[in-house]
Design a protein around this nucleic acid. Structure first.
Lengths: 334, 334
DNA sequence: ACGACTTTGAGGTACGTCAATCAATTTGGT
DNA sequence: ACCAAATTGATTGACGTACCTCAAAGTCGT
């Protein structure tokens, strides 16, 4: 009924079970001839390892950590929710996930979090600081597999990145901004922080497409909103003091302030923000926000876990790309 | 190391292993008191079933079938690819998937395919014909769990639908069509077939939003393209003979013909199509197509399998909704 | 032909759950 | 209080793989 087993392979290959085992789990010490025989037998019988049995036997428990900024609103809240939702199902598969909250932008705190780890693999969402890159290197040296989450650390030793292609996200935002705006005018870009790589990349993509395809629109210099509602609100109101805005691209958090500021404007600028949170969802519904670019947090968690498992399992082969799909939400689409 | 086992639960509950087993797998014949004790012990110890051991022990092999139209181009090709990609990984988890190709629109053929099944659950993509609905009812009566895929059969006995919310897809298409078009003019809608429910629903959503929010645009009566490139091409050219088109919403297959026709037009209408195939991808790239609305085939397959497994496993509780996310692709986003 | 070495075989235990059997005990009805 | 029925306990054998040990057989150089 349920497929050939290692015994069948051994029979077909005319070798002992031990040899089959040695080949299958490449333990070495097997002659090329025997290897070939076993491989042929595998192909011939159509043997496929029974994952359940394998996992049971080696009583492996995967210990994965997620080091992410804490926060009970906005994007990180969604991420934490997603983690919580997945936790039980993963537990059934012997995957223990531990969430280690850090303080956003607090490098020392994040380094401390990384230092305290005790796990097989870790997914990190942290600032792109040299101390952190070093810490990643140390972890890798200790045999911990490291994956970056949402915010990449491309110059570190991390083995995979799970998150958006931020340049493409910026390009997409520009395309829709450009096509939604009637006539010419100015467009405001608000980043959370101009030293955060993902935000910079989004800006890059946005600027490039604006220049390539929508040269009739003027870009104001990008401003920093610090992921803070009050700051964002202030920035928008002060920008509109000089001239009317035709469009706003808000890259970081703080959408609550954005919505407040924008809903006071008439005519409303074309407004595109990131991350589908309750606030941005509400903004879409009442027309304050035109488009939300979102990276699905559940998908991100699932992808991260999958990659971490592959990494700890195969010891290499991160064929898995962690590219998360860019979800575009509009009023009709939530 | 690896969590509490049933033995620990038995100890904590001060009952025998057999009783724990009876409660956990609700075999009945256990007093309410004992049930409570076991449940308390589970909560207290934090016991979580080891899926690997469970699957191994009951040597369950899931046999799932996918009944889908054959075809080596377009959407079904993507679907078949996705199935092929997932097959091996699923095999490792003792999930056998069998793909049964049918001839599109050939009801008798599809009924025959359904009749020949021998499996635990099936995902069906078929026409909405009474004969097929009956066949679904028969399957259900025989204990086969049935899920509809991409095209729903809402009046049948199917237990879940995996696919897009087609009304929302239509609404989204309308929103972007409306916002992309400058000035007023006419918009053409091409369905694959006006008797296919998913296409009807997309049309409905599209029409409704057009009327609600973009009343300055005129909708031509919807036409049938038969999912055929030649027909679609002919329809577009003949529609543009009377008056220039400002927009086209192509719901079904046959995008090759659409691209041919549209690229001959100047100015190009705003063109929105469904399903990211090589053709539509190319169209996006060269500017013939403005937007592609896509349902991710891999996601659909994964969701279908997951639901089928839940169904055959829990015998009910299809808490899982099979709503597939609507992916929006633009030139900057592929 | 000797030892040193590599390759192979045989066999066993463990993983945690499921499923089954059979005996022992309790409960309820009258 | 007695019999039938319901409930509980004790025990056992799979499931398929991983991993270990120990011995047997084969290979090689000198």
């Amino acid at each position: 009924m349920s497929g050939p087993t290692v015994y069948d392979v051994a029979t077909a290959a005319q070798v002992s079970l031990a040899t089959v085992d040695r080949v299958l789990n490449n333990r070495g010490g097997v002659s090329p001839t025997a290897v070939a025989k076993v491989k042929a037998a595998v192909a011939q019988t159509g043997y496929v390892r029974n994952l359940a049995a394998a996992n049971l036997s080696r009583r492996r428990v995967y210990r994965f950590s997620f080091v992410v900024p804490s926060g009970d609103t906005g994007f990180v809240a969604l991420l934490l929710n997603a983690l919580e939702r997945e936790r039980l199902a993963l537990l059934e598969e012997q995957i223990l996930i531990q969430v280690i909250p850090t303080r956003a932008f607090d490098v020392a705190n994040q380094v401390a979090a990384l230092r305290s780890l005790n796990c097989d693999a870790v997914a990190v969402m942290a600032s792109e600081a040299p101390e952190i890159q070093e810490e990643v290197t140390r972890l890798r040296a200790e045999g911990v597999r490291v994956v970056t989450l949402v915010a990449d650390l491309p110059h570190s030793d991390r083995e995979a990145y799970v998150g958006l292609d931020n340049v493409a996200a910026g390009r997409t935002a520009a395309e829709f901004t450009g096509r939604f705006i009637r006539g010419s005018g100015t467009v405001l870009m608000i980043a959370g922080s101009l030293s955060s790589r993902d935000h910079i990349e989004r800006l890059m993509g946005f600027r490039r497409v604006m220049k390539e395809r929508f040269a009739h629109l003027t870009l104001l210099p990008a401003v920093e909103g610090d992921d803070d509602a009050e700051t964002v609100e202030r920035l928008v109101t002060s920008a509109t003091a000089d001239q009317p805005l035709k469009g706003i691209y808000a890259i970081g958090a703080g959408n609550r302030g954005l919505v407040r500021a924008v809903s006071a404007l008439d005519p409303k600028p074309v407004t595109i923000v990131h991350e589908l949170t309750p606030t941005s969802r509400e903004g879409l519904r009442d027309g304050t926000i035109d488009l939300v670019l979102d990276q699905d947090t559940s998908a991100a968690v699932v992808a991260a876990v999958r990659i971490m498992r592959n990494l700890t399992e195969m010891r290499d082969l991160p064929v898995d790309t962690g590219k998360i799909r860019l979800n575009i939400y509009s009023r009709e689409n939530i």
